[in-house]
């Protein structure tokens, strides 16, 4: 790929009727203007990039997201993953829009009227550790033993304690994930529960929500936040393009 000298950065696929605001800037050091490459009822939102440097700066990442946010205010959009570059506008047509025409048409119809929300929660760790100790006498006993040990002793007891706590937390996490799904499901066309990140990750759910259910969904998230107050810190991102739902099927 050393010969790569520039190309067409692709943000996403929209219906060809989609409109773009003037002067929307894309990724890169001297960012090109975002434009639409149209073909057969579809359009790809692209901008020119040069090979001044590899893409991936903070500016590039935020620009990718900003362009997609802008697109989705006006139409359904199938978001590309960050970093898709084709040689030129012709290649966008011949390598992207043409060969995947029917899939894109189907997907645009499928996601029309829906947006994604991402709901993430983190445990207030002390609170949830307290729960774990209260629920399991064995863990509590072991913890009392470990507490009395000198700092550098009892290595295996410490590991055993940590292991018990770790697995208890995993059970807690599974139960909380079920609560989240039960609470949000009535307003969701689809939910993807992912393994939450980090020691204190509690829940990580991507939810596809139809416009008519949006108010209800947001109330349900608020309800969940209230139910978990002091125990799980809940955050919600969105509305977003359907990042978590657009994967193409493997052939």
């Amino acid at each position: 790929m050393d010969a790569f000298e520039g190309g067409c950065y692709v943000y996403g696929v929209v219906p060809s009727t989609a409109a773009l605001p003037d002067g929307l800037r894309g990724v890169g050091d001297s960012p090109g203007t975002v434009r639409l490459v149209r073909h057969g009822g579809l359009a790809a939102a692209v901008s020119d990039v040069s090979q001044d440097r590899p893409l991936g700066s903070r500016h590039d990442l935020l620009a990718h997201q900003r362009v997609l946010d802008t697109l989705m205010t006006a139409s359904t959009v199938l978001p590309m993953r960050f970093g898709v570059v084709l040689g030129d506008a012709e290649a966008v047509t011949s390598d992207l829009l043409e060969p995947h025409h029917y899939r894109f048409v189907d997907a645009l119809a499928e996601f029309s009227g829906y947006t994604q929300f991402t709901v993430r929660g983190r445990y207030e760790q002390d609170m949830v550790l307290r729960e774990v100790l209260a629920e399991d006498p064995e863990t509590q006993r072991l913890q009392e033993v470990v507490r009395e040990l000198l700092p550098d002793s009892g290595y295996y007891d410490r590991i055993r304690l940590g292991e018990l706590v770790f697995h208890a937390l995993q059970r807690t996490r599974e139960a909380d994930g079920e609560v989240a799904v039960d609470t949000l499901a009535p307003y969701a066309a689809s939910i993807r529960l992912r393994e939450p990140a980090g020691d204190d990750g509690a829940v990580d759910a991507a939810v596809l929500v139809g416009h008519e259910h949006r108010d209800g969904f947001e109330r349900a998230v608020e309800h969940l936040g209230a139910r978990w107050a002091g125990r799980i810190r809940l955050r919600m991102l969105g509305p977003l393009p359907p990042y978590d739902f657009v994967e193409l099927e493997e052939d």
Binding site: M1, V13, P54, P79, F82, V85, L237, L240, Y243, V246
Partner: peptide, 16 residues
């Protein structure tokens, strides 16, 4: 959101 999700067509197009 954007690094490991979203459409990706062929690995080779991610040249940049």
């Amino acid at each position: 959101l954007i690094l490991d999700k979203g459409l990706v067509i062929d690995a080779y197009v991610r040249v940049s």
